[in-house]
C-alpha cells in the first residue's frame, strides 16, 4: 500500500426509476450530478430524504447502474460491485450465522486466502473488539456490530469505503465515539471515504468536503469545504458557522 489511489469521477450521472404501475410517473432519483472525489478524501453526502444521496452511493458501489452518465474510479469506468469499493450499511448486516471473527474473515474466504488468523485479529483489534471474536452478532450492541462491519470491509483493503447512514440507528454517545474511531482509521489507512448522512454535525465533523444535495430536482447543490484540522471541536465558532452554512443551503434557516 505505497500509493493510495481511490479517485472517483462522477460524470453527469442521472438515475431514473421506471414507473411502477399504471398511471404512475417515472421517478428521477438523481438529476445530472458531476463531481470529483480525490484520492484519500473524506466526503459526506448530505440532504433530506428523497434527494438521491443513497442512490448515488449505491451507484458508486456498483450496486445500481446510472441511467445516464458514468462513474470512473482511477481511470476505469465501474461496471459492477468490486472488492475495491467496500460498503457499510445503516444496520450492520453482519451474517448472523457467523461469529465476529468469521464475519471479518468473510472477504478473505471469498478471495480463497489462507492463514488469515493474524490478519483477522489485526482488524478486530483495530476496531477495538478484542475478546469478542467468538461471539455471534446478536450478542453485540448496535455500535459494536457497526464496528465489525467496518472491520469486515477494511480487511479487503478497499481503495474506497462507502457508508450509507452507518450511525443513523445508534445513540448520540456511541455515534460520537465511532466518529473519532472512524477518523482514526481513515488517517491510518489513508483511503477514500464517502459517507451518506442526514446529520449535518456528523457531516461537518467527519468530512473534508460536504456535498449538499436537494430533492426535486435531485441535484448536487453546493460543495462546502471543511478546512478544520482533526480532531474537530463541535463547539468552536468555525464549526458552528459551517453547520449553519450547510443548513442554510438545505433551506432549513429562515
Amino acid at each position: 500500500m505505497v500509493e493510495t489511489l481511490g479517485e472517483i469521477q462522477i460524470n453527469d450521472v442521472q438515475k431514473i426509476y421506471p414507473a411502477d404501475g399504471l398511471g404512475a410517473k417515472t421517478t428521477e432519483a438523481i438529476h445530472h450530478v458531476s463531481a470529483t472525489i480525490h484520492p484519500g478524501e473524506f466526503v459526506a453526502l448530505i440532504g433530506p430524504s428523497g434527494c438521491g444521496k443513497s442512490t448515488l452511493l449505491r451507484i458508486l458501489a456498483g450496486l445500481d447502474v446510472p441511467t445516464e452518465g458514468t462513474v470512473i474510479v482511477d481511470g476505469n469506468q465501474i461496471a459492477g460491485p468490486s472488492r475495491e469499493r467496500g460498503l457499510v450499511f445503516q444496520d450492520a448486516t453482519l451474517y448472523p450465522w457467523l461469529t465476529i471473527a468469521e464475519n471479518v474473515r468473510f472477504g478473505l474466504k471469498l478471495d480463497h486466502q489462507k492463514d488469515t488468523d493474524a490478519k483477522v485479529q489485526e482488524f478486530i483489534d483495530l476496531v477495538g473488539l478484542t475478546g469478542f471474536e467468538e461471539q455471534y452478532p446478536s450478542q453485540l450492541s448496535g455500535g459494536m456490530q457497526q464496528r465489525v462491519a467496518i472491520a469486515r470491509a477494511l480487511i479487503n483493503y478497499p481503495k474506497i469505503l462507502l457508508f450509507d447512514e452507518p450511525f443513523g440507528a445508534l445513540d448520540a454517545f456511541t455515534r460520537m465515539r465511532l466518529h473519532d474511531q472512524l477518523i482514526n482509521i481513515w488517517q491510518k489507512r489513508k483511503l477514500t471515504m464517502v459517507i451518506v448522512t442526514h446529520d449535518v454535525e456528523e457531516a461537518v465533523y467527519l468530512a473534508d468536503r460536504v456535498f449538499t444535495m436537494t430533492p426535486r430536482p435531485a441535484i448536487l447543490k453546493e460543495i462546502v469545504p471543511v478546512n478544520l484540522p482533526h480532531p474537530r471541536d463541535r463547539n468552536s465558532p468555525e464549526f458552528i458557522a459551517l453547520k449553519e452554512k450547510v443548513l442554510g443551503i438545505l433551506n432549513f434557516k429562515a
Binding site: G62, S82, R83, G86, L87, Y95, F106, K109, L110, N156
Partner: peptide, 20 residues
C-alpha cells in the same frame, strides 16, 4: 443486503449460494 455485502467483496454466484 446480505448479497450486496457479498457483492462488494467480490463474491461469485456459487459463493453467494453456498456462503450466503
Amino acid at each position: 443486503e446480505f448479497f450486496e455485502v457479498a457483492d462488494t467483496m467480490g463474491a461469485s454466484d456459487a459463493q453467494k449460494i453456498f456462503r450466503v
